[in-house]
Structures are given as structure tokens and as C-alpha cells.
Amino acid sequence: MTENLLSVKDMKIYYPVSGRRLGKTEYVKAVDGVSFDVKTGEVFGIVGESGCGKSTLGRGICKLEEPTSGRLLLDGEDISAYNGRQMRPVRKKVQMVFQDPYASLNPRMSVFDIIAEPLIIHGLTKTKEERKDKVLELLRKVGLDDYHANRYPHEFSGGQRQRIGIARALAVEPRLVIADEPVSALDVSIQAQVLNLLNQLKKEFSLTYIFVAHDLSVVEHISDRVGVMYLGNFVEVGLKEKLYKNPLHPYTQALLSAVPVPDPEVKRKRMILEGSIPSALNPPAGCKFHTRCPKCMECCCITAPERYQADEDHYVYCHLYDDKINKEKQQNFNLIK
């Protein structure tokens, strides 16, 4: 896992809202300057509260939502300004598994037609027999039987529908799959089956995943690296082992403190955040988390934190790790003494 399959540079996705204030159009800043890389063959997990911009970021990478600004490089190809026609051949490289298996499948199409549709659009099969063999092969890969091809989505359970969505995504043999909370609408027992299936398919098809979720235990199970989002930005990104064992940002620490521990003998101190997540229409100045942060300093209310490298493959956006600020705090402490 050395080369970057995907590079996102300062991506912003803003939505204009109706009405003007003081002659200016207002925008909901769903994604507000996100940058990160995804290496070939890894699983990059994205976690955060509802409304923080996780799903919008995933849709922006697929160009299902048009980014307001920023650069998007897929396999070295800059697709930032591509229109729909230019994106068609690119879509064979990147596919998406959607959150709601009830809404992401056309109820008027049979399972066979749903999976065969991308094969037809991209001209990946030459004959009907070849197309049939490919569809049935994909169904078997995701744990369904041949006779399921003639059924319709309403005849399946939630877990089975999600398997159909996964088969559809794999039909064009993509290199990158964006899984947008693929197990959040499923029962816990079914979640484990789908996660194990995704792990199995990753090895079999040499896939790279971006896995979006709000459940930190699910992300820990499947991811290699994890990015924690808050109000349209990453606050911390690192290798799974480092981030879970040594969370640096106060927001990450609060999230992990809320994860249930199965061992009743282990006592974990809860870190309670006061207030609610601010509006993306009018985010706070400086660090966006400062309105809820128990370690807030004066500079946090004024200046947005830069990226601070804490360790190899582990960085954080927080003034607590700014060497200049820490030196000033130490000097003031010495003067008081």
C-alpha cells in the first residue's frame, strides 16, 4: 500500500440556501476544505456525528455531488472539472454502495436487470449469455442464489438488498468502492455478515474502500486508517491502531469514551460534550469545535488550527499540539512562578 489511488485536495461542497442576508447569498458548508489521500488496497474509514459531512464527502468523490472547489485525483487523473460525459469511463474505476438498501434499488427492475444495467451501459459483455453468466457469478460472490435473479427488491430482506447493491457496484470491476454507511440500516447480526463479505470481496477483487460510518466499533473492525470528521472538516487522521489507542483531538477522545466496553471489569471515564453541533450555515470562527471543547484556549476562538504531525501516519488539527502556543504557555507559567 504505497501509491495513492485517490487524492483529495481542499474539497469544498457548499449548498446555497434561499433568501439573502445583507445582499449576500448564504451557503451551507457541508464539506469545508477537506484534504486526504487513500492508498491502493487500504480501507479508509470516515467517522463523525450525523450531519458532519461524511456522506456528502463520499458523494463528492463519486461526483454525484458537484464539488464547489478543490481538486480530485483518481489514479493520477485529475477529474475535478469532468462533466457527466467525461465521467462515464471514470465511473468504472469508482463505485458506491449506498446507505439505504430500500431506496437504492429500482423496485420496478428485477435483480438480474439491476446488476446487468452497468454491464450494458459500459459495454462489458458482448452477448446475452455472457451477461447472464456474469450476473449469476456476481450473485454467487455476494452469497445469493441463481434463482434470486428473477425476483424483485421488495422480496428481499435488508441484508439481502445490500448484497444486491454490492453486486451491482462490483459489476464494472471498480478499483475504489465508497461504502456510505452500508450496515447502519441493518440488524447487528446482519451487520457482521455484510462486513465479513466486504472484507472477503476486498481480497478477492483487490479493492480499495472508503468506509463511511458513525459507529466507531464498526470502523475499527474493517479499516486500516481512520479520519474523524466534525462540521465539514477532519480533526484527526491516523492509523487505526494509533488513533484508537492514543486519540489526540478532544473530539476523538469524547467519541471513543462513549464506545461501550464488553468487559464489565473495565471502567472507562466518559468525556461528556456540552451543547450540540453548530449549524453548517454559520459555523464558529477559529476552531469549529471550540464551542464544545473542554480544553478550549483563547486562540481556538480566533484562529483555525493547522495540520500538526503527531507521528508517522497520524496527524491532528488542534492548537494543543502547536509548538509555538505550547512554548508561550510554558513561558507564562514560568513568569507566574
Rank of each mutant, 00 (worst) to 15 (best):
G275V: 10
D146Y: 07
I13G: 00
D187I: 06
L139I: 07
R225A: 07
D75F: 03
C300E: 06
E42R: 08
T56G: 03
N196E: 02
I302K: 15
V8Q: 08
I277P: 11
G41Q: 11
A81T: 13
A254E: 07
Y315R: 02
I210A: 05
R59E: 10
P118A: 09
L73H: 02
G143H: 06
D100F: 05
N326C: 04
L57C: 12
Y152E: 09
V188W: 04
G51P: 12
K288D: 00
S257D: 14
V90Y: 03
E117M: 00
K12V: 15
P247S: 14
F205Y: 14
V235Q: 05
I13W: 00
S55M: 11
K128D: 14
C287G: 06
N332P: 02
F289I: 04
L73E: 13
L255C: 08
A81K: 13
R225D: 11
E137M: 10
D10Q: 15
H249Y: 10
P182T: 02
F205P: 03
Y230W: 13
C299N: 04
D37W: 07
G60M: 12
E312W: 02
L119C: 06
R21P: 00
V34P: 06
T291Y: 01
R88D: 09
S69K: 06
R85I: 11
I46R: 11
G158A: 14
F234L: 15
G23K: 09
K242G: 06
L139N: 04
Q162S: 08
I272C: 02
L72D: 01
I115C: 06
R108S: 07
M271Q: 13
P101C: 04
R292A: 01
A285F: 02
L207A: 04
I210S: 04
P174N: 07
I190P: 03
S189A: 08
L186N: 04
K126V: 08
M109V: 00
G19E: 10
I120F: 01
V177M: 11
T291R: 00
D10C: 05
E26T: 12
S257Q: 14
I121S: 05
L273Q: 09
M96C: 07
R161C: 03
L119H: 04
S279W: 01
R307I: 03
D313M: 12
K9W: 10
P67D: 05
P16C: 08
N233P: 01
V34D: 12
P284C: 09
R59Q: 14
L239M: 14
Q331M: 14
C293R: 00
V183F: 06
R225W: 03
R131I: 08
G23V: 09
Y244D: 12
A171G: 00
V34K: 08
K240A: 11
R168K: 13
I277E: 11
L176R: 02
S110Q: 12
V259Q: 12
V316L: 09
C301M: 13
K39F: 09
E137G: 02
K245G: 02
I46G: 07
K128M: 12
G58C: 06
R161G: 01
Q99L: 10
K245R: 15
V194Y: 03
Y317T: 06
H148F: 14
K337C: 12
R292W: 05
N233K: 15
